[in-house]
Design a protein around this nucleic acid. Structure first.
Length: 568
RNA sequence: CGGGGCGUGGCGCAGCCUGGUAGCGCACUACAAUGGGGUUGUAGGGGUCGGAGGUUCGAAUCCUCUCGCCCCGACCA
């Protein structure tokens, strides 16, 4: 491709709306352009990258035995009523009506459509297991779209669905998909991790998320330094950290702590560290209120808390008035001793001795509190987020934390959809069997942004080769004046194309600096420069985007040299 | 949904307080010079100042309504 025949539209300035690197760079490269909130146009340059991702995903899905198909974006409301999700899915579901008033949703996901398809198409256990997938546009009306295509409302997703005669078959396919996903991210040359995950609103039992690692990621992943354990911190089990029973050595004592409302205030006033304090959060229960007691330096994991018996779902913190009515004092002075509402104590808080907590009286805290002696610890649960340094839940090593961007998620759905939609096949026994299902998603558009988050510098994008819009940039120096340079570059351009190399020839009448900057901004992995000096020496100049030194290569060897580079 | 901010040419912004009929940089067009890291000069094209209503002799500027966009928050007492 010649730049003169391509649409290259880079900008020097960063659009004001872009917050994170990948969004800024995608705009500056001219890969995307916002049409309206959370909705983007992909330019020819951007689409090249998108297609690379799609094709790798497609190849690996095919290799794993999944069959590609294409389902509609616009889906009739009736299907969503069947599964109950028309009302459950919430405001993220974009609803619309046609001219005769019939209701539709723009598909945010396709469980309903595929299950409807499967119940018509699949009749016998002999057709199972079967996995179908598509690469297609989805729409989710996000509360707050942000970060460009990282969290957009319209996006492209690869979604796959598998159908089975029993759970054992589902488990097998699930493992095949897990392996296929690992193969995909490995081929994309992205640093990633597969982690245990919550199955969330889509439902089901087993679930893994695939995260591209990047410091700017929105998710926190906990992993063991000694085993393969990795989990989203939403899910990671938090252990107490201490095996021995706490031993009391102090007696309980009340301290005036006027104006202290936060753990930080109390620590300062009483000159202790937060690990020796507890905080008491009050949430709504199915009946009345429940207090959650955590170590002062730990944070509540809402997901864990709302799964506990008695706690109202979704988790709702009690407001000041509710707390005053039940306890007599407001937030900031709450503590376990003498608390008139039921308590759930976090494992780590339950192993404290001689600790500090609110006195349930405005402006006072207790020190030297001990469980058993001063207050009963009847109900101990895991309700906190893990932190770095916690013991790994599998007993091997300690946990570290990493930031990641969720780009893939696989679930074992079980019969959640097939049951409500009556998707059955006849089994060997001649009876109808509800098909257990699996579903497997990859955010194609998000991968592009995540790849940039992981691979860029202050000059621009550094594409991993499998994602690059072009493999090689060919830059002539002063081609306008020098016929020799023009002829040599044109000849090399033809030669590279003939060798099957995807080359971008910058034939614009611009100064070298402009070419260098543009090619680095859009992140072409390999660069060849042709100039008078080199021609005299029978050489061209090679440089990799992620290296800082130029390499002189004899003109006659450059194609082979590049082929070698491209195969690494 | 709550809070904050912003809408002026394709992009980045000034002008608004104190009303007098729109400007700068980048980008774009033409010509010339330059020619290994966003070069320079000259000459151009492009904006009913988000929209509607109001105040006024006169509104980008003041008032009212409205639409759109961005950021933060929506758990740590």
């Amino acid at each position: 491709m010649k730049v003169s025949q391509f649409h290259l539209a880079t900008t020097r300035e960063t659009p004001a709306e872009a917050e994170i690197s990948s969004h800024q760079l995608m705009l500056r490269c001219g890969m995307i352009r916002k049409l309206t909130s959370g909705i983007y146009v992909w330019s020819p340059l951007g689409l090249r990258v998108l297609r690379k991702v799609e094709n790798i995903v497609r190849e690996e899905m095919n290799r794993a035995g999944a069959l590609e198909m294409l389902m509609p974006s616009v889906q009739p409301a009736e299907l969503w009523h069947e599964t109950g999700r028309w009302d459950q899915f919430g405001p993220q579901l974009l609803k619309m009506k046609d001219r005769s008033g019939r209701e539709y949703a723009f598909g945010p996901t396709h469980e309903e459509v595929i299950t409807d398809w499967a119940r018509h198409e699949l009749k016998s256990y002999k057709q199972l297991p079967a996995t179908f997938y598509q690469i297609q546009t989805k729409f989710r009306d996000e509360i707050r779209p942000r970060f460009g295509v990282m969290r957009s409302r319209e996006f492209i997703m690869k979604d796959a669905y598998s159908f089975h005669i029993d759970d054992e078959s589902l488990q097998q396919t699930y493992e095949v998909m897990h392996a296929a996903y690992s193969a995909i991210f490995t081929r994309l040359k992205l640093k990633f991790r597969a982690v245990d995950a919550d199955s969330g609103a889509i439902g089901g039992s087993q679930s893994h998320e695939f995260h591209v690692l990047a410091d700017s990621g929105e998710d926190l992943i906990a992993y063991s330094d000694e085993s393969g354990y990795a989990a989203n911190t939403e899910m990671a089990e938090a252990l107490a950290g201490i095996d021995t029973a706490p031993i009391a050595s102090e007696s309980i004592q009340k301290h005036a702590t006027p104006g202290c409302h936060t753990i930080g205030d109390v620590c300062k006033a009483l000159e202790v560290t937060a690990e020796r304090t507890v905080k008491t959060l009050v949430v709504e229960a199915e009946e009345g209120l429940i207090a959650l007691v955590l170590r002062g330096d730990h944070s509540l994991n809402e997901l864990k808390a709302e799964k506990l018996e008695g706690v109202k779902t979704p988790l709702q913190l009690a407001d000041e008035d509710q707390i005053k009515a039940a306890v007599g004092c407001g937030t900031g002075s709450l503590g376990p001793v003498g608390l008139p509402i039921p308590m759930i104590i976090d494992r780590s808080a339950a192993v404290l001795a001689d600790f500090i907590g609110g006195a349930n009286e405005k402006g006072f805290h207790n020190s030297g509190i001990n469980w058993g002696r001063d207050v009963a610890a009847d109900r101990i649960e895991d309700i906190r987020h893990v932190v770095a340094g916690d013991p790994s839940p599998d007993g091997k090593g300690t946990l570290s934390l990493l930031r990641g961007i969720e780009v893939g998620h696989i679930f074992q759905l079980g019969s959640k959809y097939s049951e409500s939609m009556n998707a059955v096949v006849l089994g060997e026994d001649g009876k109808a069997h509800v098909m257990p299902m699996g579903c497997y998603g990859i955010g194609i558009t998000r991968i592009v942004a995540a790849a940039i988050e992981q691979n860029h510098d202050d000059r621009g994008v550094i594409w991993p080769l499998p994602l690059a819009p072009f493999q090689v940039a060919l830059l002539p120096m002063n081609m306008k004046k020098s016929l020799r340079v023009r002829e040599a570059t044109e000849a090399l351009y033809t030669e590279l194309q003939d060798a099957g190399i995807d080359v971008l020839f910058d034939d614009r009448p611009v100064r070298p600096g402009v070419m260098f900057n543009d090619m680095e901004l859009i992140g072409i992995p390999h660069r060849i420069v042709v100039g008078e000096r080199g021609i005299d020496a029978g050489e061209v100049e090679y440089r990799a985007r992620n290296e800082s030194d130029n390499i002189q290569v004899p003109m006659a060897e450059i194609v082979d040299y590049l082929k070698k580079r491209l195969n690494n």
